[in-house]
Each structure stands twice: as C-alpha cells, then as structure tokens.
Simulated assay, not measured.
Amino acid sequence: MLWIAHWGGNGVYRWNPDNGELLDRIDVPAPNVTSCAFGGPNLSTMYITTARVGMTEEQLAEYPLSGSLFSIETDFNGLEAYSFAK
C-alpha cells in the first residue's frame, strides 16, 4: 500500500496501488502536508511534516500548527530501510 502526503489535503492518505482505492486517512491540523515516514521502535509511528510557506495571515490564524512535525501511533508498521554498499 502507498502512504501519500497530500499538499492542500490536510493529511496523509493510504492508497491501494492496484485499484486506486482510498483505504485510510490520517488528518492533521495543517493543510499543506509535505512528507511522511514510519519510525520508532516498531516502525509504527507515522511522522508527518507540514509547511506554512505561501499561507496568508488568515490561513495561519485558522491553521496555527502549519509548519509543524506531527507524530501519530498507528496500527501499521513501516519497512526497515534497505541497506546497500557500492
């Protein structure tokens, strides 16, 4: 499955790449989500970054946590990084 950060979408969405079905969504209190990664001891913590660049004063007042890093415990586990040598 694919976890995708949605700029302007207030969250990270989990998609089935085989059929395009939306399976899950993790919402954050910031509209511009930039990236996501699993970490923590069991790779079950989702780290989500957001941006505040280009936002108006009104948008920043509505979403004051824009630009923050969020961490959320999930029921999912990421994969360990693949190590390789040249």
Results as ranks from 00 to 15, higher is better:
P17I: 01
N19P: 00
E58P: 02
E57C: 04
D18V: 07
S35Y: 02
H6R: 10
D27S: 13
F70G: 09
L65G: 01
S83L: 14
I72M: 12
A37E: 15
G67A: 07
I48C: 04
N16P: 05
S44W: 08
T34P: 07
Y47P: 01
M46G: 10
V33F: 07
P31A: 11
E62W: 04
S66K: 01
Q59V: 14
N10Y: 06
A5C: 10
G20D: 06
Y13C: 01
S35H: 14
D75Q: 12
F70V: 04
E58G: 12
N77A: 14
V53K: 14
L22I: 00
I26A: 03
T74P: 06
G8D: 04
W3L: 10
I48D: 02
V33K: 05
N10C: 15
Y13K: 14
I72S: 06
M55Q: 13
E62N: 10
I72A: 09
A61V: 03
P17C: 06
A51C: 13
L69Q: 07
N32H: 12
R52N: 09
T74Y: 06
D18G: 13
E21T: 13
Y82D: 06
F38I: 02
N77R: 14
P29W: 04
P41F: 09
N32Q: 10
I48R: 03
L23H: 05
V53N: 13
H6I: 15
T49R: 11
L43T: 04
M55S: 05
L2K: 10
E80Y: 03
A85E: 15
H6W: 09
E21R: 11
L23M: 14
G11C: 02
T50R: 07
E80Q: 08
S35L: 09
P41D: 13
S68K: 06
L43A: 11
F38T: 01
P31N: 12
S68M: 03
P64C: 06
S83C: 08
T74G: 09
Y82T: 14
Q59E: 15
A81D: 13
N19H: 00
N42V: 00
G39Y: 05
G8S: 03
G8N: 10
A51Q: 12
S35D: 15
Q59I: 09
G78C: 00
G9I: 06
Y63M: 04
I48T: 08
V53P: 00
I72W: 01
M1R: 13
N42F: 08
N77T: 15
Y13T: 03
E73G: 10
W15Y: 12
T56G: 05
T50N: 05
R14G: 05
E21M: 11
Q59D: 12
S71G: 00
V12K: 02
A51M: 15
S71V: 07
T56V: 07
N10H: 13
F76Y: 15
N77I: 04
P31C: 07
G20A: 08
S83E: 12
N42W: 00
A85S: 14
S68F: 11
D24Y: 03
E80N: 06
E58Y: 10
E21P: 00
D24T: 03
P64A: 01
N19Q: 05
G78V: 00
